[in-house]
Each structure stands twice: as structure tokens, then as C-alpha cells.
Nucleic acid binder design. Structure first.
Lengths: 108, 108
DNA sequence: TCATTAATTCACCATTATGTTAATTAACAT
DNA sequence: ATGTTAATTAACATAATGGTGAATTAATGA
């Protein structure tokens, strides 16, 4: 699977996306911090974290008996870079759409 | 499923991602244009296009006997917007990383 | 040492995703 | 009308995903 595709796959699950957003907003957190998130059991959380790690979206650091997780900045950046590489396309398209809608409303 | 999560899910499959990239690079295309793309049958392509459409990543227009598909600019933009909303985080993190690596190489 | 805490791995089950071939729908062209 | 082309829907098989409870590993601390 292509790199970016794997990243998208990792973020395609609600629980995993919520985990990543929590990490982005609160910084490095232990695995246990995600316990009270939508009634998902510890084994489930653990597997989601492994999927995120394997996809390179998060990284793990061991501190005593805690496993600390954080978002890999490269992952979030590369998503933005992909979108931006097509910026010309979507910016122009959105402009055209806006102009069309404006003419629509003027005509009425 | 959250809007963005659905978009990621749509792009989490190699074939669908390839379809979207082809549409981004070549513009509006008929369903049949994706036939010779990694040995996937027409029914499979058709279902992938439906998934992309349901997720709001592409839109469909009927022209005679052809169904024409194109990328919805909003979809690609919203992905970029998400990444950019965390720009402070990843830019600072990457800077720190770069500085660290530089000091590493200087120390040797 | 032994009980506790943190997190994971195991074994299993239900659901979803993806692909196939065959059949169907719809528009075109002769 | 009828055959052709474009694309989808139907019916089905198989693989992947995501969840659970039970068991396991590893560090902590009385």
C-alpha cells in the first residue's frame, strides 16, 4: 500500500481518528488515557494504537510501566502536502463555483 | 462517521486512491477510463466509484451513455484544511527535529 | 515474595469490504 | 427492431476489520 494510502487507512476509523485528535490537542499520552473514549475496551484501544504506529501516524516511547504515544508530525504534514499539491485545482474550482453561485443569486 | 473520517475511508483503498489521482491529473473521466488500472473488473470499478461518490469525494454527471466522474474540490480542500489546522504543531515539531539532527551531526 | 497496575497478546466471533461472474438497464446506431 | 457499447446491479465467495473476555507480560510497591 502506498504510504499516504496507509495513513488514510489508519485515520479511516472513528476511534483511531478520535485518538489522533486527542493526541494532537493534548500532546503525548499514555495508552490508558484513551480508556474512557466511547466505551471501547483496553484490548481494542491497544490494537488501534498498534495500527496507528504501524502506519507511522503515532510513535511510542516507554516510560516505566507506561507506554506513551504521540503523533508523528510528518504524518499530518504529508497529508497537507498532498492536498496542497492539488491546490491549483481545488482553488480554481471553488472560485468558479463561487462565481457561478453569485451570478445565480444576481439573476433572481 | 464524521465527515473527514468518511473521506479518509474513501481514500484508504489503493484502487480508489489511484482513481482519484487519475481524476485529479486528467480531469473529468468516464467510468470506463479506469478499466485498465491494475486488473480490476468493471463491476469492481463501479463499486469503488459509488463509494467515492457516497463519501463526497467525486461527483457524477451523465452524458449520453457515459457517466462522467470528477473530483469534488471541497473534499481535497477539507483534507488540507484539517492538516493546516494543526500546522503549528507539526511545523514546530519538525523544526525541533531538524535542529536536533543538526546538533547530532556537529557533535560527530 | 506477592498482590497490583498497565498494557498487550490470544482465541474467538460478527460484520464489513472487496472481488468475481452472470444478468440487467439504458443509450446508440444501423 | 436489433445488435452493440457503457455501466450498473445481483448473487455469491473470501479476506480483512473490529470487537470481546481470558490469559499473559512486565514494572511497581507493600
Amino acid at each position: 500500500m502506498s504510504n499516504l494510502c496507509t495513513t488514510f487507512a489508519a485515520l479511516s476509523n472513528e476511534t483511531r481518528f478520535a485518538i489522533v485528535e486527542k493526541l494532537l490537542n493534548e500532546g503525548e499520552l499514555s495508552a490508558g488515557s484513551f480508556q474512557d473514549m466511547g466505551g471501547v475496551s483496553p484490548p481494542a484501544i491497544s490494537r488501534h494504537l498498534k495500527i496507528l504506529k504501524d502506519a507511522g501516524v503515532v510513535e511510542q516511547r516507554v516510560n516505566k510501566q507506561r507506554r506513551m504515544y504521540s503523533v508523528r508530525p510528518e504524518a499530518v504534514q504529508s497529508i497537507g502536502a498532498w492536498s496542497m499539491s492539488y491546490r491549483d485545482f481545488w482553488q480554481k474550482s471553488l472560485n468558479r463555483l463561487e462565481i457561478m453561485l453569485q451570478k445565480e443569486s444576481e439573476r433572481k
